[in-house]
Amino acid sequence: MLLEVKDLHVYYGAIHALHGISFHIAEGEIVTLIGANGAGKSTTLRTISGLIRPRSGHIIYRGQDITLTPPEQIVRMGISHVPEGRKIFAPLTVRENLEMGAYIIKDKAEVNRLMERVFKSFPRLKERINQLGGTLSGGEQQMLATGRGLMSKPSLLLLDEPSMGLSPILVQEIFNIIKEINAQGTSILLVEQNAQMALSIAHRAYVLETGNIVLSGTAKEIAENPRVKAAYLGV
């Protein structure tokens, strides 16, 4: 088991955001969390990566309890989080953004090798290597954010809404790359509102509704569930 989340409760002030959710990710899987706005998807990711402290519950990564580990430590353990809204460092160049992604890697040659690997997946970034992050288009920013997330050589990549604000062609492109990344051995926890796309590449899926996991199963099962079809797939 790569990651196991057990009975996680998260509060924003008095608001109970996650009502004790539990799920797991196995090595090499793409798992997707789907749900409507405010269901708690991003909260789940932020809690896993340590940005939010849960009130109770456990997050276990490779047998180690990381519930209260600070985010900068969690990155070192191999979990990389590509946050919602991309969160590119706008005043830094593309190269500097990628270097920050590899902040935990001391070896310069290794950083360059990783950067080449990112450029292979996202050739567009190589053309813009000395451009400021803030001047990139939305699609390029998403590529940069994903590439930056990969620079720390994660075993688990947390992707938050990679399709947000992108044109359908770009969405397709990004999802192909996600599949490719997974094929190279990185497990992925994907949070998406675009359920159709997410289910098409995921192995398993969980459906989150107002802080509770209401359904779980393989991506295929979930995609065929009539409730999901009605609520998220618009069929």
């Binding site: 900068e72 990389s80 946050p83 005043p91 920050m100 992604g101 935990i104 720390s152």
Partner: peptide
């Protein structure tokens, strides 16, 4: 330098800088 770039990254966005493994 790496620490210098990390300083600029931190000044722009602290939570995201932490996600990079930077000890803010």
């Amino acid at each position: 330098t790496k620490i210098g770039i990390a300083m600029r990254a931190t000044s722009f966005d602290k939570p995201t800088a932490r996600l990079m493994g930077i000890n803010v």
